[in-house]
Design a protein around this nucleic acid. Structure first.
Ligand SMILES: NC(=O)c1ccc[n+]([C@@H]2O[C@H](COP(=O)([O-])OP(=O)(O)OC[C@H]3O[C@@H](n4cnc5c(N)ncnc54)[C@H](O)[C@@H]3O)[C@@H](O)[C@H]2O)c1
Ligand SMILES: NC(=O)c1ccc[n+]([C@@H]2O[C@H](COP(=O)([O-])OP(=O)(O)OC[C@H]3O[C@@H](n4cnc5c(N)ncnc54)[C@H](O)[C@@H]3O)[C@@H](O)[C@H]2O)c1
Lengths: 221, 221
DNA sequence: CTCAGTTTGTTCCCGCGTTCACAAACTCTT
DNA sequence: AAGAGTTTGTGAACGCGGGAACAAACTGAG
């Protein structure tokens, strides 16, 4: 049953489970039930059990899960037992924040280079790394075996930066620029889209307001 | 058919369509087919048409869509014809970047206040706004009618900040802290989770590497 | 050892979302 | 005006994901 293929929806939740397990470990809790872990991760317990069953049978019926052991298994499945060199391109407002983000390095990821096209920024020290020229990308990728690239440039530059990354050998891209990137097969792209998130919230907010108003008129009628 | 209820998956894509339409407008293109717009938004054209059909019949068969008109209709549906006051809490690395983010204000959202618990930061000017104390939250929310709050504090503080936001009247929260927030019914939360995104990429990257290795051994066998 | 209690792993069912495929509706040429 | 060519809007089929429910497997008490 295990190791065939994990559904995408499940993969997206594994990091959440991992965080929940880390919290439990911090609280010196060494064992937990699916119910407890699910509550901690904010999901249904049946869903949690089904998700975990894709990885294997790591629990004990009548008992629950060993926190440390489960944490290791999930880490291994995600690939966090090795560490992943990452390159960040576009060291502006957002790039600075990302470079300084400790949650980055603490969980299996290591920023190996910060690149920017603006030569005025070259040499500037951010989070212990010197900002370097974008043309060094290929060399850096090969030197460190970088597989993951982060794009934090303006939207206009994102596609071209992405193309160059793929050319250099990067196979996974995290994109913060508000553009749809087109990539060949075999390359994964995930986007973090702040404006979209806000717009989705606004849509629901407007609906809530509309409903409230409708109820108001109904009551007064 | 229109105006009943728009599926969540569709709502999440409307902002992408909106951006694609804006790009077309910038390029002085006043009309487009579902095929072109879909390509621009990176989705299947049938999906695009079905999504748009939830809003109404804004296209013309045999012709396509009027870019300006469609853009207005989507904007209206999302609620971007009004503008939304936003409060950002936690003006650290990320909060600074968000406050300086122009894409914020340019599309219907207006940052009205930056709040932080650290009194050493109070009064500091960021993107034309003074950082203020977190205890001013309630007053600011009432003064400006703020409905949307952004959390950029450390994870440990996020739930308590969220509770205070809801207490003050905020009904939609965008959370950047790596925690699961629990909120009462009627409140929407969306999270932006950088570590999760990276971990998802790492999972796929590991699988790709595993597959490549497996093929390699197969070939050599 | 047996039985009651607990909790996992899995099966089954349902609803949502995606995609295909096509009729309906429009334009343009002749 | 009619027919050829386009393109939208939608009905229907299909697959994936979520959740309830239950059997299997374990613990512990007597
Ligand atoms: N600031 C935010 O909070 C925020 C939030 C969400 C999304 N974004 C998006 O993230 C991206 C970056 O935002 P920002 O506020 O940091 O912008 P910024 O202008 O401060 O920084 C962009 C950086 O990219 C560099 N750059 C430009 N073209 C480049 C190229 N071809 N190759 C390499 N580097 C290049 C610039 O020199 C600059 O340093 C934008 O697309 C923005 O829409 C920003
Ligand atoms: N920096 C990044 O690129 C990045 C990326 C993704 C997620 N995050 C997350 O975003 C959050 C902020 O990250 P950061 O790098 O800006 O951290 P930071 O430490 O630089 O900033 C946090 C700010 O929150 C303030 N704060 C703390 N407790 C508060 C409270 N109770 N009320 C109001 N303000 C409070 C602090 O004074 C500080 O100014 C963290 O949860 C982090 O995990 C950061």
């Amino acid at each position: 049953m295990s190791h065939s293929r994990i559904p995408e929806a499940t993969v997206a939740r594994l990091p959440v489970y991992l965080r929940a397990l880390n919290s439990l470990l911090d609280a010196k809790i060494s064992s937990c039930s699916s119910e407890e872990l699910a509550a901690s991760a904010g999901v249904n317990s049946a869903k949690l059990r089904k998700d975990l069953s894709y990885l294997g049978s790591y629990g004990t019926r009548g008992v629950g899960y060993d926190v440390e052991y489960l944490r290791y298994q999930i880490s291994r499945e995600i690939g966090l037992t090795q560490d992943w060199p990452v390159v960040i391109v576009g060291i502006g407002n957002l790039g600075h924040a990302l470079a300084n983000y400790s949650g980055f390095t603490s969980r299996g990821f290591r920023t190996v280079a910060l690149l920017d096209a603006d030569s005025n920024r070259h040499g500037e020290l951010v989070a212990g790394l010197k900002i370097r020229g974008f043309n060094e990308l290929s060399a850096i990728v090969h030197e460190h075996g970088v597989a993951i690239g982060v794009i934090a440039t303006p939207a206009a530059a994102a596609q071209s930066v992405c193309d160059r990354m793929i050319e250099a050998g990067i196979r996974s891209v995290l994109n913060f620029a508000p553009t749809v990137l087109s990539v060949p097969d075999g390359v994964d792209v995930r986007k973090v889209d702040l404006s979209s998130e806000l717009q989705i919230l606004a849509y629901h907010e407007q609906r809530k307001a509309g409903l409230a108003a409708a109820e108001g008129t109904e009551e007064s009628a």
